[in-house]
């Protein structure tokens, strides 16, 4: 794998994030991700994994530093530009974030909002082509038969796959997934992870995901990033993350020195 020659798709440069209440979310993060990678972020609860993900599409603003998406700074982006950059980044949430009372199709279509002028959106004027696109995304996660079901009629795992379809319909270059399987059973977990892997391999979409399970990280990821107390303490291919390194990410010692 010689991804290193390509242009980076996500680039963190000296990123710091301090929450309003003084909590340090991220500290001096440098991180470069190339197209087609499947990067798994691991770390203790509260380490700053979610903060990292949310900085990428600026659901959270960072305090200092710069984040570039495909060579453009999202940190500097304003108004329309920010919205159109977000369009390129799909996001999958732990608790799905579906509109429960709306149909599956409706939910998947909302992935297209970024492509329409506002007035068309307000009237609910989605094109037939986009409806078809949404339907194809649903086929990809094998939920085509549920298009017209209401979201709350689906099981948790199915809802999560709907949210994957929503992100896909967005036709993103990057998918961010913040603990997408935390509330799913082991069986469903593999369904969802397989879907994400498939998307990564077949469509070449870059995946940045954070997981609590080291086994899953090793099984699906191509690269692991370890976060502890807002610091990046490990960054390397899955193969180089041995048990000792993993243990260090989750406990005390500074892995960057250990791993080196």
């Amino acid at each position: 794998m010689t991804v290193a020659q390509k242009e980076p798709i996500i680039q963190f440069t000296q990123v710091n994030k301090v929450y309003e209440n003084g909590t340090v979310g991220l500290k001096d993060i440098d991180l470069t991700i190339y197209p087609g990678e499947f990067v798994v972020v691991i770390g203790l609860s509260g380490a700053g994994k979610s903060t990292l993900m949310r900085s990428v599409n600026r659901l959270h603003d960072i305090t200092s530093g710069d984040i570039q998406i495909g060579g453009r700074s999202i940190t500097q982006a304003k108004g329309k530009e920010l919205l159109s950059m977000r369009r390129e980044i799909g996001m999958i949430f732990q608790n799905f974030n579906l509109v429960k009372r709306a149909t599956v199709l409706r939910n998947v279509l909302t992935g297209r909002v970024g492509y329409y002028p506002t007035w068309k959106m307000l009237l609910g004027m989605f094109s037939a082509a986009d409806k078809q696109k949404a339907y194809e995304s649903l086929q990809r996660v094998e939920l085509a038969d549920k298009v017209y079901a209401r979201a709350d009629e689906l099981s948790g795992g199915q809802q999560q796959r709907v949210s994957i379809a929503r992100a896909l319909t967005q036709e993103p270059r990057i998918i961010l997934a913040d603990e997408p399987i935390a509330s799913l059973d082991p069986q469903t977990t593999h369904r969802v992870m397989d879907d994400l892997k498939k998307i990564n391999e077949e469509l070449g979409i870059t995946v940045l995901i954070n997981l609590h399970s080291v086994e899953l990280a090793k099984e699906y990821g191509s690269r692991i990033v370890g976060i502890r107390a807002g610091h990046k303490v490990f960054d390397g291919p899955v193969a180089s993350a041995d048990d000792e390194t993993i243990a260090a990410i989750y406990s005390g010692a500074d892995t960057e020195k250990v791993g080196a």
Partner: peptide
């Protein structure tokens, strides 16, 4: 469960 050949969005049944 097999997918249909056409993969066209079916009309909504009311």
């Amino acid at each position: 469960m097999e997918l249909s050949e056409t993969h066209k969005l079916p009309a909504r049944t009311h």
